[in-house]
């Protein structure tokens, strides 16, 4: 019964992300179109371009139709995987082609950054809670503020300098040693290396992931440190923890049960953190020359390619909605109190 209930819950939640996606699409659409001025002119800059070329660009971007038509046309296209074509060199390439190669790189980076941030946050938060009121607790609190205010490119560069230049143990950019060839299946290099049994590629791709992953992970761990600490302090003062103690249950087990309970609210934070993570990923990618969506957007901004920017942003909107669905499902799986 529970299984059927969960399947139903997932379907309902999946249907519920449709309005979320529509709203996000609408917001991005409105912001990109309603803002003053001609977007083509804005991205092309103040340089004078021949009127016929401007017309051509507007046509390619679908900007020559009434707004309401544009809104539905573009939505229809996006739902069919058509994000338009690039407006700058190389001109006329479907944006989705870029997304297909760039997105797995961003996904791989965010997965690692996410994992690092959760692990670091859980450990530091738990230690702070178990030693609450002590110097360690204060230290963790300062850590969470400092981590939160670290500027990603700056912190990334310091890691590059220490581990890449001074110690020379880790690469400072890219996804994999270019001398190693790897057959891509999913586009996630670590996964692909494992699937194809390519050990050198596996080692190389992991080495390339450590610094950018840690940069993202540490910066985003601060919020978890603080939340885990506060939840854990709350949970540790709860009656059922006292009950466990009164039953002679060993301490390490009680700590584990407390951590499980403290983790439930953390899941809610994860959805929001993932969005911040994606923002941070753009800066991380730029710092580490990581060929993902972030560097793609930045490249296209330099080329003033309006269609590509719009496509990438809309794609992110879809992705954020899917992540929030996944977070909800995980929450429902872990907390028996959720009714579905």
């Amino acid at each position: 019964m529970a299984k059927k209930g969960l399947g139903y819950y997932i379907v309902v939640r999946a249907l519920m992300i449709i309005p979320t996606i529509l709203i996000l699409y609408t917001i991005v659409f409105i912001l990109l179109r309603i803002l003053p001025g001609n977007p083509i002119l804005a991205v092309v800059g103040t340089r004078n371009i021949p009127p016929e070329q401007l017309k051509h660009l507007e046509h390619l971007a679908g900007l020559d139709k009434p707004l309401i038509i544009q809104y539905f046309d573009y939505l229809w296209n996006v739902l069919h995987g058509n994000f338009g074509v690039t407006l700058a060199s190389p001109m006329g390439v479907p944006v989705i082609n870029y997304i297909a190669t760039r997105f797995p790189a961003t996904l791989e980076l965010t997965i690692w950054g996410f994992t690092f941030s959760v692990i670091i946050g859980l450990v530091t938060g738990m230690i702070a809670a178990l030693k609450r009121g002590s110097k360690i607790d204060t230290g963790m609190r300062i850590y969470s503020i400092v981590a939160y205010t670290l500027f990603i490119p700056w912190f990334g560069m310091i890691l590059q300098y220490v581990f890449g230049v001074i110690l020379g143990v880790l690469p400072t950019g890219g996804r994999i040693d270019p001398r190693i060839s790897l057959q891509t299946i999913t586009g996630l290099y670590v996964l692909d290396s494992i699937l194809t049994g390519n050990i050198p590629a596996l080692i190389s791709s992991i080495k390339h992931l450590i610094l950018p992953g840690l940069t993202l992970g540490i910066v985003l761990s601060g919020a978890y440190t603080r939340l885990v600490r506060n939840n854990m302090v709350d949970v540790l003062s709860m009656d059922f923890i006292r009950s466990y103690k009164a039953r002679g249950i060993p301490r390490y087990k009680i700590t584990w049960y407390a951590l499980k309970n403290a983790f439930i609210p953390v899941i809610t934070l994860m959805g929001l953190q993932f969005a911040i993570l994606l923002g941070g990923a753009i800066l991380t990618e730029t710092t580490f020359s990581w060929p993902g969506m972030g560097t793609f957007i930045v490249d296209r901004i330099e080329y003033r390619d309006y269609n590509s920017i719009q496509g990438a942003i809309i794609f992110f909107a879809f992705f954020v909605a899917v992540i929030s669905l996944i977070v909800d499902v995980i929450y429902a799986l872990l907390d028996p109190r959720i009714k579905y």
Binding site: M238, D239, F240, R242, S243, Y244, K245, A246, R247, G248, I249, P250, Y257, K260, N261, I264, L334, D335, P336, R337
Partner: peptide, 24 residues
Amino acid sequence: FRRILGREIGVVFQDPMTSLDPLR
């Protein structure tokens, strides 16, 4: 002491709503 607790001495607390682990 832990060997005695729960085995030779049992404890029941005031609020049954909060004295059991909600996740297990």
